[in-house]
Design a protein around this nucleic acid. Structure first.
Lengths: 248, 248
DNA sequence: CTTTCCATTTGATTTGGGTCAAGGCACAGG
DNA sequence: CCTGTGCCTTGACCCAAATCAAATGGAAAG
């Protein structure tokens, strides 16, 4: 990892989303001052739409806190989530003026935005920004491809288990309760949002959640609070080959 | 489009896959000579595996001629295609040493490879390469997201129609036969490969192809030769909102 | 010309998940 | 305290696509 490993709007950099400044005093001069100038924050309430597909989008942004989703909708109303944005994730495409997807805040949300025009200019003069963005985009592409396997080939039960594992793995607030891998977290999605993520109906999601509970794979307190007594057991249900990188 | 719109291994640049040289004499000096030095060609026969998931991969490459696929396989053998590489598409990830997917030649294939180490070095000193790569990766991400909608929410018939439209749209050898949008092309995939693309079984693919033929949406000569009397009619079957950019 | 070998088609049957339809539960407002 | 109103669960039934099983057809080999 070079000293240029800047994060565009990472959550763990305190007030300033550009962790770079904290990481690398050496580069403090030009490019970063410029980034500071063109950045601004926007907040959204849970349920609010950030932007509709097709709307003009004159910024790029990254999530500071909260969760947002990207979804596509067909004319007849069928919906598929195509992106789940957690803190530090990036939205928006340099070189495109209209949003390609609906972006919605599923929890209260703070985003760190950069005006697009100057961001693009900065990108063309600052190689490290493009390189960092490339890295992040490649990660997203990998995630999208894993998601395609899920959508195309997994059973409903495997889909649910996979989603729980994905959320658990990325939930930074997640506290391990034992060496065995027991832990607890809150679902940030409604059953319907889970269904849109997984290519299922909300009824099927509900049924499979109940089934995983019945079989002791997960515990459910209320509708949203999940506890996983044994992460390995959950992973067995996903259909993936073991491991998967669960280790902070 | 700047004069820096280099293509990494584009097909339309004659012997040299880097169209940049043809487009931009101005930049001919350093970076491109270096690219020339680290590039080499590899050929594969139809059906041959280019690389297995998990194998060490010390190059990045782009397709010059032919078609390759990226697939993921679960332990029990369920397979999902996650990438379809047509001429000018790029494979391989700077900053990763092992292949993440199986890459297979579905037709005879020529790839233009760049040794990874020097390519990465070149990338870090040449901003335009990273920027071009970012652009291509963002395009792939968009394609992956459209594919996710297909896998998660479309019916078998819509999936088949969508795949035919996608192939037709990207087939450079495709000849329009009339203003109405009639044309003809050869399927580059077997029924099984189509099934792996679409998250279906090969039987379902076959049945839906027959149904589209019966309904006059497509014509079939032999197993592979498709003719589409009316592209708009095919598009109606995809479930997508109209247009879609069919105008090469 | 016959045989083998695939890829593909087609048919019969099963099934996982969708659809439709009631409830249940928790919380906010009157 | 009652009554909406969102979410979620559960049940009954249905259907699109999977599965299992032949049959067809075309191309290459003998």
């Amino acid at each position: 990892m070079s000293h240029h490993d800047l994060k565009l709007g990472a959550p763990d950099c305190g007030d300033c989303p550009i962790r770079h400044r904290a990481v690398c005093a050496r580069c403090e001069s030009d490019e970063l001052k410029r980034l500071e100038e063109i950045k601004y924050y926007r907040s959204f309430q849970a349920g609010q739409t950030v932007i509709w597909s097709g709307d003009r989008m004159d910024f790029v942004a990254s999530v500071v806190t909260g969760i947002a989703t990207l979804t596509q909708t067909m004319e007849d109303g069928r919906r598929q989530m195509v992106g789940l944005l957690l803190p530090s994730d990036f939205v928006g495409r340099p070189g495109r003026s209209a949003a390609a997807y609906d972006v919605t805040a599923t929890t209260d949300l703070v985003m760190c935005c950069f005006r697009k025009k100057p961001f693009e200019e900065l990108m063309s003069t600052t190689p490290h920004i493009a390189q960092r963005l490339l890295e992040m985009t490649l990660d997203e592409l990998d995630a999208a491809r894993e998601w395609m396997l899920l959508l195309g080939r997994k059973t409903a039960r495997e889909k649910i288990a996979s989603l729980l594992a994905i959320i658990a793995r990325r939930d930074t607030s997640l506290k391990l309760k034992s060496a065995k891998g027991a832990f607890t977290f809150d679902l940030p999605l409604t059953r319907e949002e889970m269904a849109d993520y997984l290519g299922l109906t909300l009824e099927t999601v509900s049924r499979q959640m109940s089934a995983l509970k019945r079989d002791g794979v997960i515990g459910l307190e209320g509708k949203r609070h999940i506890n996983v007594p044994n992460f390995d057991r959950l992973m067995e249900e996903t259909g993936d080959d073991s491991d998967g990188g669960m280790l902070g």
